[in-house]
Design a protein around this nucleic acid. Structure first.
Lengths: 232, 232
DNA sequence: TTTACATTCTCACAGCTTTCTCACAGGAAG
DNA sequence: CTTCCTGTGAGAAAGCTGTGAGAATGTAAA
């Protein structure tokens, strides 16, 4: 299992901790890249083949939380947060934004390595590192890189909320998504059960992507359950 | 009838902590079962449909670590260890044996819930745990993952109640299900003896899946007892 | 600061679907 | 034949969804 030589990206601005992690990774047979900024992390991810991210939240340029969100728009790769912040709310927020694990400094090598192994185990079970750049359903195309939506190769103007709703459907093509699940994913946890807002949002989106919003072709309603992006 | 919640099994012998966790889970809308022993955990897993395990390592009968190993022999369902032991080696061992996360007591509700959400996210992405994503009986196919029903590969429109009825039969192919059992499973306890509603529901379902509802091919009536999905 | 504009959420209501209740007919079993 | 059980259609009640109008919020330009 260790022969696959997974590549870890370490995003950490404290040189001492960075070296400590590097040393441990080398011992275990991982290869790695390092960067000290959020900006650097994002550009490394584009230029190199990375399997897992170790992310510090307190970065000099902008917050690590933003890195999580950005990465999650186009990849499901494991993200382990390594941070000095040990507030419960901070942890929960990072995890809900898409992080897979959260370690509080100071931590031990033993534990970090074990948690990396868990994350990679999940990755392989899910079928490897799938990165999307563009995905098409019928005449509808979503470009994850550029944040653009095309209908029959004509660019559509899409609002941020509508975009995240579309991303959710494109990541789950063919599956019925329950209203509750959708709400949790796009509004975050705790912003409960306001199905009305979702209905309005859906109406707006359909007006843009469907020829006849009353008889939708792409996003279908499953009455009593939720919605589904058709996969034919 | 949004009763399709995930079910958590809590394995914990300290009553106080157990209650604390139960309360939190209820708040978040999860359903749960509890047990205080390793033996109890294993038998619950066989008899009930569990989605996630919260596991204490220090159990009265035998060590929680054994539960992890046993479960991993046949299932990939998420296991979150909740333990007072905070030795790094202990953590690493549990994680390497197959646990997906490890929380040290004392922990906060906020963090526990966030980590449960992470685990369920992984489960959802992997496409359900040990359940087949799709199951077929004759020309009838039920796709659990996508929440869809097909008859001879043509998609059927199925209402939520009809769907949960079908799921119940697919989980018990070939077995006779008594009317009372079906009622309890579909409507929940306390809905008494309203067999009439079930008859109407069944009529509607048969109209959709049977060629000749008067002479059903899939769901047969066992007079005086209940119904049975044939296993041919 | 004011103004204009886009986005998102709230409200009210119409229309549709699902679900349950009722009444009755046809069968099976004794 | 009688009794109990099951299936079916009609229709009422309850619940769910889509939509337009407008309020609230946020953003950018003048």
């Amino acid at each position: 299992m260790q022969n696959r030589n997974e590549r870890v990206l370490i995003v950490e601005d404290d040189a001492q901790i960075k070296n400590f992690i590097c040393y441990s990774l080398k011992q275990e047979g991982f290869s790695y890249s390092t960067t000290g900024t959020a900006q650097g992390a994002l550009s490394t991810l584009v230029s190199e083949q990375i399997d897992l991210i170790l992310l510090d939240l307190g970065l000099p340029d902008f917050d690590g939380m933003e890195v999580i969100k950005k990465v999650r728009e186009w990849s499901d790769m494991p993200i382990i947060v390594v941070s000095a912040r040990d507030q419960d709310k901070e942890k929960a927020l990072a995890l809900d934004n898409g992080a897979d694990d959260y370690l509080t400094k100071p931590f031990s090598t033993t534990e970090l390595m074990a948690r990396i192994r868990v994350a990679l185990r999940h990755l392989y079970k899910a079928g490897g590192n799938i990165q999307y750049t563009s995905q098409t359903v019928g005449g509808l195309r979503l470009d994850f890189d550029k944040h653009l939506v095309f209908l029959n190769e004509k660019e559509l103007h899409i609002t941020p909320m509508e975009y995240s709703l579309l991303v959710l459907f494109f990541k789950n093509v063919g599956k019925v998504l329950t209203t509750r699940y959708i709400l949790k994913e796009i509004y975050g946890v705790g912003y409960g059960t306001d199905t009305q807002a979702l209905r309005t949002l859906m109406a707006g989106l359909r007006r843009k992507i469907e020829e006849n919003p009353a008889k939708p072709r792409y996003i279908l309603t499953e009455i009593g359950v939720g919605y589904r992006l058709t996969d034919e």
